[in-house]
Design a protein around this nucleic acid. Structure first.
Lengths: 201, 201
DNA sequence: GAAAAATATTGAACGCTGTTCATAATGATG
DNA sequence: CATCATTATGAACAGCGTTCAATATTTTTC
């Protein structure tokens, strides 16, 4: 039996998390099993359940961390600019999202995996993280809306965000063969942002 | 042992399909298991594997049928109209898609379920069905593009389709809390279509 | 220091999954 | 009736998440 004074409870919980992250990273989400994690950290499967309520609970923690990484990447685009600069920033942001999807493919896919259920009464903090996703885009959209258009402004941020995600998701999961040889996804994203912004103005 | 002359091989295959469809319809995708289907049709689990290569194969057939239903619903919108009429038709089409997602929720979700893999060398026919999805929208977009813009025209259809789907998917799966109390998804879809078309013109 | 209480870890066990395949039942043919 | 091909079977395999009585370890009490 593993010695329990080798580490605090939190250290062990973190070890489980890190092992899980590594497994997903190297072998994909399907390879993430309780027994696999246990083997990796040299503990019995049951130990994981002393630290996490369930595998779903662990999934949620991993998604939370992924959202933190994504939020970090999407923030830092210069706001309070002219429309032209803001438009360029939005394109850059969209590409940044696509890059993230590639860099953290398995984790990004997990965010939208239906098996990973987040319908938990105590997961308000999770939805707050999700809400943060819109803030950077909302800031960039400021020059396109005047006072009294707050509702449209907010809606536009969510629509444009969802649209870029929709393109990215269908492409990356091969659910739709979206693009012909002639046009790439990044071209499409640019066209989407351009057209949408032109439609606002 | 079930009598094999009660039905042809095709009839039995269809019975499996219908049982699967009913299970998904009534109990959701997670309830769809080989043993469950077998019980429903009064056969042993192994029988299913005489008719379908694997459960994944069955999933693919079900998705194919869902795509047929979806394609049927998205076709029939009047094309060759003025821009204004075409725009209205596009909104109607988008709402039609949203309605379909609600009416066939479990099946529609299956289309985008990552567990249901379609990376099969022999599934060209499947991707053809997927490609058909764009045709109706492409027709409606005809008045917005002149000769020589075929590439943009094709791209626009895919972008708008993906965007509407993105909105619909994130909303329906509760992955994003997209909408505030003040605005609904249908409102957003209308705004998306309007703005995008305005951006083209 | 010894005994008792509290805590952490274990791993077999449960019920489930998709899938396989030797065996048995059935239908068709000669 | 006997032979043969086809079809149906269901136990078996390896895996899954999860539970929980039993065991090992640490802490507290006396």
């Amino acid at each position: 039996m593993a010695r329990r004074s080798d580490h605090t409870r939190e250290e062990l919980k973190d070890a489980v998390f890190k092992a899980a992250w590594q497994i997903i990273s190297e072998e994909g989400f399907d390879a993430l099993t309780a027994r696999h994690i246990a083997k990796q950290i040299g503990y019995a499967p049951g130990t994981i359940y002393n630290l996490y309520d369930s595998m779903d609970d662990l999934y949620l923690q991993i998604n939370a961390h992924t959202l933190d990484l994504l939020n970090a990447r999407l923030s830092g685009f210069a706001d309070n600019q002219t429309k032209a600069v803001a438009a360029a920033q939005m394109k850059a942001m969209a590409h940044s999202y696509m890059d993230f999807a590639r860099d953290y493919r398995a984790f990004w896919l997990m965010l939208f995996n239906l098996k990973v259920t987040i319908h938990r009464p105590d997961a308000g903090w999770y939805h707050e993280k999700v809400d943060q996703l819109f803030a950077p885009l909302e800031k960039l959209l400021v020059p396109f809306y005047v006072q009294g258009q707050e509702k449209d402004h907010k809606m536009a941020a969510r629509i444009l965000w969802s649209s870029v995600h929709g393109l990215c998701f269908l492409q990356e999961t091969d659910k739709l063969i979206l693009m012909t040889n002639q046009s790439s996804v990044s071209e499409s994203v640019d066209y989407l942002v351009e057209t949408f912004l032109k439609g606002i103005a």
